[in-house]
Computed example of a mutant assay.
Amino acid sequence: MSEFSAASTPSTPGALLGLAVQVAREGAATARRMRSEAIGDVQTKSTATDVVTAADKAVERQVIEALQAARPGDAVLGEEYGDTEAGGGSGVRWILDPIDGTVNYLYGLPQYAVSLAAEVDGAVVAGVVINAATGDEWTATLGGGAWRGEKRLHGSVPSGLGQALVGTGFGYDARRREHQGRVLAGLITQVRDIRRFGAAALDLCAVAEGTLDAYYEKGLNPWDWAAGGLIATEAGIVVSGLGGAAPGIEMLVAAPPAVHGPLHEALVALDAAGGA
Rank of each mutant, 00 (worst) to 15 (best):
H154Q: 14
V207N: 03
K218G: 15
D121K: 11
G243V: 02
L116Q: 10
L202F: 00
N221W: 11
L161G: 14
R192W: 12
Q180S: 15
D224E: 15
D213K: 13
L161I: 13
A113F: 07
V120W: 05
A255T: 12
A254Y: 01
V239T: 04
N131S: 06
A164L: 10
I194W: 05
L184T: 14
S159M: 11
L142R: 09
A140T: 00
H154S: 15
G162R: 14
D121M: 06
G155Y: 05
E234R: 00
L212G: 10
L202S: 05
K151A: 15
L161E: 12
L252T: 15
A232R: 04
G243S: 10
A235E: 11
A245T: 00
M251T: 03
M251R: 01
Y112L: 13
V124L: 00
W223R: 09
G122E: 04
T168D: 04
A140I: 01
G143Q: 00
R176D: 12
R177I: 07
P247C: 10
G219F: 05
T168N: 14
P158H: 07
P158D: 11
G171W: 07
L204D: 06
G228C: 00
A226C: 01
E234P: 00
E178F: 12
V120I: 09
P158E: 09
E217A: 13
V166M: 08
A235N: 08
L184P: 07
G127H: 02
G228H: 02
W147V: 10
L165Q: 14
Q163S: 14
E209M: 10
L187V: 11
I188G: 15
F170W: 12
G219S: 01
L220D: 06
G198L: 02
W138D: 05
V207A: 03
G162P: 12
L230H: 00
W147A: 08
E250K: 09
G229F: 02
G143R: 03
A126E: 01
V191N: 09
P110F: 01
G127K: 01
V253M: 00
R195A: 15
K151T: 15
S156C: 09
A206S: 13
V239Y: 00
D203M: 07
V129Y: 07
C205S: 04
L116D: 06
R195K: 11
V238A: 12
A245P: 03
V124H: 03
Y172L: 11
G171T: 10
T168P: 07
G160E: 11
Y172F: 14
L161K: 11
A200H: 12
I249N: 15
G149E: 00
A245D: 08
P222G: 04
S156L: 09
Y172C: 08
Y112E: 09
E178P: 03
V124G: 05
